[in-house]
Amino acid sequence: MDVKGRLTLDDDGAVVSAALGGAGLAYLSEWNVSDALRTGQLVQVLGDWTPAEPGVCLYYPAHRHAPASLRALVALIRENLSRVQK
C-alpha cells in the first residue's frame, strides 16, 4: 500500500529510531521492538488487528542448484530455529 506522508522508510532500524523519536506509527516485527515495548518506550496499537506470525519464512527455488551462500544461510536459520524451539 502506498501511503502518503512526510516520512517513508525501508530500513527497520531507521523505522524503530523514528518511532522512538515520536515520528508516528510504525509497523514492525515484535522482535525489532521487544525491548522498547517492555520498557514502555513504545506501545502496541491495533493489536487486535495484527495477526500473530509463527516465525520467519524463507522462500527460494528448491528445484535449482542453490549457491553455497544460500545453503549456508538456510543451515544457519534452521540451526537457530531448532535452538529457539527447544
Rank of each mutant, 00 (worst) to 15 (best):
Q44N: 08
A62T: 13
T50I: 04
Y59T: 08
G21A: 15
A23T: 00
L70Q: 09
P67Q: 09
A66E: 09
G40W: 13
N32V: 06
G24D: 02
P67I: 02
A19R: 00
Y59F: 14
R64S: 14
Y60R: 09
M1Y: 08
Q44D: 12
W31I: 09
P51Q: 02
E79S: 05
V43P: 00
G13T: 12
T39G: 01
G55C: 01
W31V: 09
L81K: 04
D2L: 09
G24Y: 04
V43H: 14
S17C: 11
M1V: 00
L58G: 01
V3F: 08
V56W: 10
Y27E: 11
L37M: 03
V74I: 15
Q44I: 10
W31Q: 02
G5P: 02
P51Y: 01
A19Q: 08
G55W: 07
A75R: 05
R38M: 06
L42I: 06
V33P: 03
R6W: 01
T50D: 03
Y60D: 08
R38C: 07
D11A: 13
D48N: 11
L37Y: 04
P61I: 07
P54I: 02
S69E: 15
A62C: 05
E30M: 03
D35I: 07
S69Y: 09
A66F: 04
D35L: 09
Q85A: 15
V45M: 11
T39A: 09
N80M: 05
P67E: 12
C57A: 13
I77L: 14
R38P: 00
L9D: 04
G47W: 00
P54M: 05
E53L: 10
G22M: 02
R38G: 02
A75Q: 06
R38A: 15
D48C: 06
D2F: 05
L28G: 01
L70W: 07
R71E: 13
G55A: 01
L46F: 14
E79G: 06
D35V: 11
W31T: 09
A72H: 07
L58W: 05
G24V: 05
A66H: 10
G5W: 01
R6T: 05
N32S: 14
A52Y: 06
V84I: 10
A72S: 12
E79T: 04
L28T: 02
L28N: 02
E53K: 03
R6D: 10
L70F: 10
A52S: 07
R38L: 12
A62L: 15
V56R: 08
